[in-house]
Every structure is written in C-alpha cells, then in structure tokens.
C-alpha cells in the first residue's frame, strides 16, 4: 500500500492509501468533532458532524471526513464559516431529539448551537448506530438493531438474545451519546425478560 500526501489545515501529512480524512487529521493533530465514529467500528457517516471542506475545481466541496478516503494532494480545511454553520445546524437538529445529551451540549457550546431552534421532538435517539454496530461488529451478538424507518426508526432489543447476552455485557451503554439506549434496555428488560426478584436463587 502506497503512501498518500495531503494537506489538512495547512499541515502536511502522509498516510497510507485507504485512510479516511478523519484518521489522517487526527494523525496530523487536527481535531474534527464526531458523534457516530468509533475506532473499532467500520465508518458509518451517520451524524455528519465531521463535515469538512476539500478543494475541488477551484472551489470547496463538502465531505464527511469519517467516510471519505484520502486522495493524493488533496487540500482539506476543517474549520470555516460555512463548516461551522453546517455543524451548528446539524447539532440543532439533533438537539431537537435529545436536548439533554451532555455530548451534544458540549459540541453545541463549541459551535454556538441553540438547543431550542427546532421544535423539540424528544425521541432521545439520534440514530448514531453505535450500539447496533458495536453489538454486531465487535461482539457479534446482534442483540440490538434498528426497526421501522424514517421518522419512526428506532432501536429495539431482540428479547431472546438480549435476555441471554446483555446483562453481563452492557458494553454499548457507555457508547450512547444520549442515554436513550439504557432506557430502551430497561424497558425491554422489564417487559420481555424481567430479572429474578432480589435474593432469589438463579
């Protein structure tokens, strides 16, 4: 695999072919915010907070840094008025769903996003897919997945699998940017596979 030179925010960096712009930026010491990215999972491109610009035919083109592979000689900038405006809007849309998420609020402060710009539609899940993908790609258990589509899309545990696998794992809990996952698990647990009463012998 050959090495690819590129420039990110004025810093020259050389990375192996196939590296994403996000990884290249982190290697160059340039911070790009992310929500749905996880180093152990395949790139997903779900949240669009990692949007950056790349020079293209004399102008600037928007790309999602976490899924875009580096190209030789590409010039990337990770902050501009336009990028900040887009990240702000993305965050405001996500905040309508999960207004109390600490991770979202931290980014919102950074980009001046207002939490009540859009009418709240508190579904609490922002569809980052971290839990679904972690369970599938790292654990290979497929205990939680997406159901339905569009505005009704949500995560759901498969009771039969969750009852067997989840109590001793719960590794996805800390990945969730909104804590909706924990709520979904407690709900599924109490409805479909209630834990034995305290003090009972298994």
């Amino acid at each position: 695999m050959s090495d690819v030179p590129l420039r990110i925010d004025g810093k020259d960096v050389t990375v192996p072919e196939g590296t994403t712009v996000l990884e290249a930026a982190r290697r160059a010491g340039v911070e790009i915010p992310t929500l749905c990215h996880h180093p152990r999972l395949a790139p997903y491109g779900g949240c669009r907070v990692c949007v950056v610009e790349t020079e293209f035919r004399g102008g600037w083109r928007l790309i999602a840094a976490c899924v875009y592979p580096v190209e030789s000689g590409m010039v990337v900038r990770t902050r501009s008025e336009k990028i900040d405006r887009i990240r702000r809007s993305v965050l405001e849309l996500l905040l309508a769903h999960a207004p109390d998420s600490a991770k979202l609020q931290e980014l919102a402060r950074l980009y001046g996003a207002k939490r009540d710009r859009f009418a709240p539609d508190a579904s609490y899940c922002i569809h980052c897919g971290l839990c679904v993908r972690y369970c599938a790609e790292v654990k290979g258990k497929f205990a939680v997945g997406f159901v339905d589509r569009g505005i009704r899309k949500e995560i759901a545990f498969v009771p039969g699998i969750a009852a067997r696998e989840c109590r001793d794992c719960k590794e996805c809990f800390e990945l969730c940017p909104t804590s909706y996952l924990q709520a979904a698990f407690v709900l599924a647990e109490s409805l479909a596979f209630p834990p034995p009463p305290a003090g009972a012998k298994p």
Binding site: V132, A136, F142, G145, F146, V147, R149
Partner: peptide, 12 residues
C-alpha cells in the same frame, strides 16, 4: 441472518 436484520427489513 441475524434476527436484528430480519426485523429491520420486516419493519422497513
């Protein structure tokens, strides 16, 4: 095929 995928498609 994982049950999560079957349910994803059956509800989609």
């Amino acid at each position: 095929v994982p049950m999560t995928r079957v349910r994803h498609i059956a509800t989609f």
